[in-house]
Amino acid sequence: MFPTPIERTSRSWQISYQTLLPLALILWLLPLIAVAIFSFKPASDFANANYWGWPSSFEGFTNYALVFTGSDMPQYLLNSVFITVPTVIGAVALSCMTGFALGVYKFKANIWIFFMFVAGNFVPFQILMVPVRDLTLQMGLYNTITGLVLFHIAFQTGFCTLFMRNFIRALPFELIEAARVEGVAEWRIFWYIVLPLMKPAIAALSVLIFTFIWNDYFWAVVLTQGVESQPVTAGITSFNAQYRAAYHLMSAGSIVAALPPVAMFFLMQKHFIAGLTLGAVK
């Protein structure tokens, strides 16, 4: 193990390490801690320029309650859910199939199709922006959740295919060969043999895509406009416009907007990290 395990070092370094650890963490999360503190302060503290002093009263509950009752925040959160969940299902379903096709079959165009997905996934959003917005307008899906979901599914399929294909490549191929010898139909191989083995990949990918889509801002701004379809990342700007200079409320709003992916991460940590670091080890 590198660096040298702490148990094998001098006593003084052990003690300094144990004190450095929490200090480093506080320093690392300082901007976030500041916002968290803001969200518990009453409005009067900001009027009196008591920014960093002790809160004159603890108003956390009032502030967060106001985020949910005094604004469109619940609607934005709901929109985010309705955008994120179908996208995750759609992109994962499509990429299970493309990943299977590219991971199991050998044919000439295989590597080129694979590279098309990979390259498309790296493309800057701006090169797609005008045509995709136009397409969405023409289909009558501008400013709808469906329009946003369809695009997200298509775009995420690139990354998901890369992920799934590499995962399937690492599965024991003899399993599929044996099934073929036994005369199992190809679609049955997919459904009964490969798909069950892909469960960990599906879990990892779902958590990742959930986070990516929940945190998307660019496409939300390009393809949607109002409270009826915008996700919370875009909604937070309207929220901040509504409560301009009410820092306690804006802080609370930001924390609410950031929370779902954070909760997802802490609940599904193992899958999340497995997904993110696929390929980081050979």
Partner: peptide
Amino acid sequence: MTPWLFLAPGILFFLFYVIFPIYQS
């Protein structure tokens, strides 16, 4: 044939929303 059937929905979606728009831009 199987790989193409499995690829079809993904490729169509991707061509429609990603590859074709690049050309359009």
